[in-house]
Design a protein around this nucleic acid. Sequence first.
DNA 1: CGAAGAGTAGTTTTT
DNA 2: CTACTCTTCG
Length: 673
Amino acid sequence: MRAPPLASVSHDGLNDRQREAVRYLDGPCLVLAGAGSGKTRVITRKMAYLLGECGYLARHVVALTFTNKAAREMNERVRAQVGARLLRGLTCGTFHSLGLRLLREEHACAGLKPGFSVLDAADGLAMVQSLLETTDRARLRAVQQQISLWKNALLAPEDAGAHAAGPEQLEALRIYHSYQATLQAWQAVDFDDLIYRPARLLAQDADVRARWQARIHYLLVDEYQDTSACQYALLKYLIGDRARFTAVGDDDQAIYAWRGATSENLTQLAHDYPALRVIKLEQNYRSVQRILQAANRVIAHNPRHFGKTLWSDLGSGEPIGVIAMDNEQLEAESVAMRLSADRFGRAACWKDFAVLYRSNHQARLLEQALRALHIPYTVSGGQSFFDKPEIRDIMAWLRLIANVDEDPAFIRAVTTPRRGIGQGTLQCLAAEAARSGGSLFAAARQLPADAFPTARQAVAVAQFVQWMLAFQGRLGERAAGLLDDVLQATGYEAHLYDTLEERQARTRWGHVLELREWLVRKAQEEGLTLVELVQRVALVTLLERSDEEAPDAVKLSTLHAAKGLEFPHVYLVGVEEGLLPHRGHEEDPGQDASADAARGSRLEEERRLMYVGMTRAQRTLQISWCRRRRRGREDVACEPSRFIAEMGLEAGPAAATADPQATLARLRQLLKN
DNA sequence: CGAAGAGTAGTTTTT
DNA sequence: CTACTCTTCG
């Protein structure tokens, strides 16, 4: 982060407001931190303050974030200030990882066995599919999302009925009931359960509540505006009457309402804790004035609860560029070329640049365009390492060893690599499981050999069961040896080379070895058992090495994934009606009195997304939109986003009047030489 | 049972 | 255009 000007700070590098936020420990504290106002600095300094000067023991301090990356960064920054020794025992992680830990430690009270599984979204969707018996993907996702929203609103299946309206919601409710029952039968939890179940448990069980409240003496929450009702409930139970906590957030950057977050939690906090000290951070240390002013104008179109006015003394900066391109292909090419020219012209590094967009699929064209000009880049988000089929294959084995009752893992493990067990055999097992009410594995174990159509199937199943039981008995061993034996037993490497082309097999096997390395390293570093490792993997979205090595590369990122980051130069692409704001989110606020009108309209959230994107930029901001864009099959005409008008740029001789197409041709010529 | 082929549907954001 | 699903054949 850029060093603040000397005049406004004292020796400790904090301004008055920031210092107040760090030092205030007497009661509940809410820090309203505008974009670029030094939020991370405050939160890490406060942790250092607690652990250092105030003598809090690390194991009594909990800091919660939304992403693993944010947690890791926070950890490092605090360590740099207080040293590794004082950090031992500190809980600094995501809501989900804290929830997982609580469930693990209190598994008996929660009605779970120690090796319970954590299902990822794909497994959850598969379960909804089997329950709903349809292949309509849109419908399946809608049901899954509805269930997720109910959980985030802390509604059990029994309670959700009161909030379900219409045949579709009632159907979703029916699925919700059986969904939870099936999870319990599998001894599995889904992502949302990692918050939902701990919150319920703390509400119901006074002993558990007392245990955790005694343990947490101070709690800090980052990105508080993105908490759901469920997460807020969890927080309240953890905080207890002591109410020693600091929440940091910015209602203007709330962009996760679609997954159950309610920025009402900000106003709710003042109601629930009348002693709440509210501190506003309004000086922006990131962006030049032109950018900040335009962003302020855009966000001013939203109704706002807290009157923050961000200001900056970093100079006015260059005008914001807005250009229109004929289609997304040209847009991507022009970004690539302007990027090249910019880097040269400003003598900057590649990593000083970011290209931001609304939705993931936009990355494709940009990647192509950048690759064509040999511009190094990294893509944030996108498909995760742990989503790769070869990784899911191996993980299915490990998950099954940890919890033989988890049917999704069973199905995957028993069918890959192919071992003569297919649809027919699985149907046999499913029938038995349905009859006895047990898991597929239990069925495989119990079913006599003559229950299968062919003897071959019976043998294959029996052998698989033997394997599994043998591995299960070795759960206590070191992860490395067990893992190697699993790979050996499955013959996975040979399977890859048998079924794929040489090249592909080699990369995939490489991934498997990477996974092996990662698991073994984790096991050693943090002293985790295989069971713990397997549970944690569901929460890890990216391999950690990916941002450890910091190559000099342009960052391609969705707006959502860009939150919390900053770049000297930002290109914001696809700023059109229908994309940003996204289709179906353009309705004007106010008219309908439906439930989510209270939560603020979707348009407002899209506007905040624009605001987040703009405020990532430190020095220059380039915005582009396309006159035509391919949507599905057909080309459609597009109009510039209303947010461009809302920026209120002075109509000058700047970029608006330049002919981008001509510029493009000129640049193209330039690059040829 | 499993692999290769043809046809078909699909585009928001993520822990 | 691509990725995935369902179908058909060995």
